[in-house]
Nucleic acid binder design. Structure first.
Lengths: 349, 349
DNA sequence: CCGTAGCATGTTGACGTGAACATGCGCCAG
DNA sequence: CTGGCGCATGTTCACGTCAACATGCTACGG
């Protein structure tokens, strides 16, 4: 009988020590270990110390799978994003991560399956969703419909920056306010009208910004030129910026995000049009780097941190209490820097 | 006896249908459902179809907690990062996410606990780690030592961009190569020497870039001025750039990342020093936006995608086979754009 | 002096899954 | 014709935890 081993001791075992091992070492029942592990108060101080010592000695860590199985809760939030490579998404994710951590929740990134997936995935693709208590969606909700991500019915969901879908709670940034602020700022400086470099049509945020820009122009009786549509990238901003730069009538441009604004600035420089002397530019997002663009960019600041915090709060409320939080809107503010100025020759007839 | 309910049917239940429910509906045993669910081949085609139909009808999803408990595997990779708000980290994370998804693994973000955590966390802080099969660390390893993240012994770990820690497998970017390329490029253009704006001392990458810059200068017999140390942000690049801009002897600057380079460019513009006519600037990272800086930035491109892919590959290899992959190094390349040129007056004595 | 309230601790069982082993059936070689 | 093999399918049980329900002990009032 040489194979008798202290359970969990010795090498070779891949699994760590379990509650039972701790219990044995501490001379208590497994239940008491569980109580200590969960911070219950009804445990004698001395017993607790003994259990903690045993945990320490064995290097015990609770098995979260077993715990999740037993309790039906994972203490995990899922986040669905199409791309991590956008400034705003990243900042939002960062904020969500902090908020989740504070609440004692882990964060799982749920990939949106590539459309180019074979049949194989049938059984697998929705596997990940099952391990979360709720989901925060940071993509355009309508894109979600087109993908084959299936949300388990009954799973709490919070949608960020894609309001208007009443199936779920949402937290939205006040895009309309920001776009109005930007447009009015330029109008207020004396520009006859403001051109717009928009984000992709399919983007909810892009649409909101464009609509608000247009409405503001109309409200002020300014001419509305058709917006140029980019894809959020600096490169697309550059291309569209070249078009605008060649048009001598253009004196003010409102760009739907800072990255495209960077491209627009470059295009203007390349065409020898001075910013802000000849052309004023306003961005949207408030990325830190915008302060170091040349010239430093006037932009609309979004409060990504606040958005992240609120979405986690709303989600966990629903997870823990079962009822939904009211949707909420986070304000935006204009940050005036050096890329905007009055037009060189005010339009006077 | 009015409370008798078809198990899992009707409302009120929070838990979804289980294997047993599917089995009952399909008229098979739970084990057969399990086989179908796991894609085993030894199931009759007709039976499989019946089971799949039953799954569909009930909206069955495998309970990943139970599965993890049974198999001891979570099919989840943990990622530890200090900050998501840096360009490189975000690109790496994106690549890790894609690679993990392809391998059928989920991704969990493990927060680095704020140092300002009380005693309360004692039992909690390391809870999250337990739900992963392996961990990819994308922070400076020595910072990890200072934090109170405790890695469960035996957990497979891959360290990204922080080689030199032989406790773990690592995947590193060839920082030295990039820095040498950048420095030689400037030297080759005829600059007498190259100044350096470095990243924080505590950063492994920053140190490697600085050392290689210095070594290259020495190899070419150029004067080595002490590097200026920033914190990776555009703002710090701006501050340090102002110092350099005021010094008329400065004709070439190698900046340790693109964001700081942006700040340096701004500082040079503010001081009226033409880039590249008077001063050449090279960055590091290869962020897309750098092509739209003004002037478009010559920089060292890192292959974040490759780094992410390799780290996942190495980690999963270790998770699944038990033995460690050899460390690996990903190359870098110089991307020459418009921010570099020969000095206006070549240094001739 | 007994009944009971309050507290620390123990015992039992179930959460949903899949590995190991068991069963039963058809088919082929000897 | 029969023994055994391959295959589809079923049965049993344990993974580690925690809720619910004991149990046993101390303390205190009537």
């Amino acid at each position: 009988m040489t194979t008798v081993t202290t359970p969990g001791a010795a090498a070779g075992r891949r699994r760590g020590p379990s509650m039972a091992d701790v219990a044995r070492l501490a001379g208590v029942s497994g239940q008491t270990v569980s109580r200590v592990s969960n911070g219950r108060t009804n445990v004698d101080a001395e017993t607790r110390a003994r259990v903690l010592a045993a945990m320490e000695e064995l290097g015990y860590r609770p098995n979260s799978a077993a715990r999740a199985l037993r309790t039906g809760r994972f203490r995990t939030i899922g986040v669905i994003m199409f791309t991590l490579s956008s400034f705003g998404n990243m900042r939002t994710l960062d904020a969500i991560a902090s908020a989740a951590e504070e609440a004692g929740y882990s964060l799982t990134l749920i990939p949106v399956p590539h459309p180019t997936r074979g049949e194989v995935s049938d059984a697998f693709q929705s596997l990940a969703d099952a391990a979360v208590d709720g989901v925060i969606i940071v993509i355009e909700a309508h894109l979600l419909d087109e993908s084959d991500v299936e949300l388990p019915p009954g799973l709490p969901v919070v949608i960020v920056d894609s309001a208007g879908d009443d199936r779920f709670t949402w937290v939205d940034t006040d895009q309309a306010l920001g776009a109005r602020l930007a447009t009015e700022h330029l109008l207020g400086l004396g520009h006859a009208t403001v051109r717009h470099v928009a984000g992709p049509d399919r983007s909810y945020s892009a649409t909101r910004r464009r609509e608000s820009w247009e409405a503001t122009l109309r409200a002020h009786g300014a001419v509305v030129h058709p917006p140029l549509v980019g894809d959020w990238s600096a490169e697309s901003g550059h291309e569209l910026g070249l078009e605008l730069a060649r048009d001598p009538d253009v004196t003010a441009i409102f760009v739907a995000n800072d990255q495209m604004a960077l491209g627009v600035l470059r295009a203007l420089h390349e065409c020898g049009r001075a910013v802000p002397a000849e052309v004023s530019v306003v961005g949207f997002d408030g990325m830190e780097e915008a302060a170091s663009f040349w010239p430093p960019l006037t932009t609309v600041r979004q409060f990504f941190g606040e958005v992240g915090r609120r979405s986690v709060e709303a989600l966990l409320h629903e997870v823990e209490s079962g009822d939904r939080r009211a949707p909420s809107v986070v304000a935006t503010e204009l940050v005036v820097r050096a890329s905007t100025a009055p037009p060189r020759r005010p339009v006077v007839e």
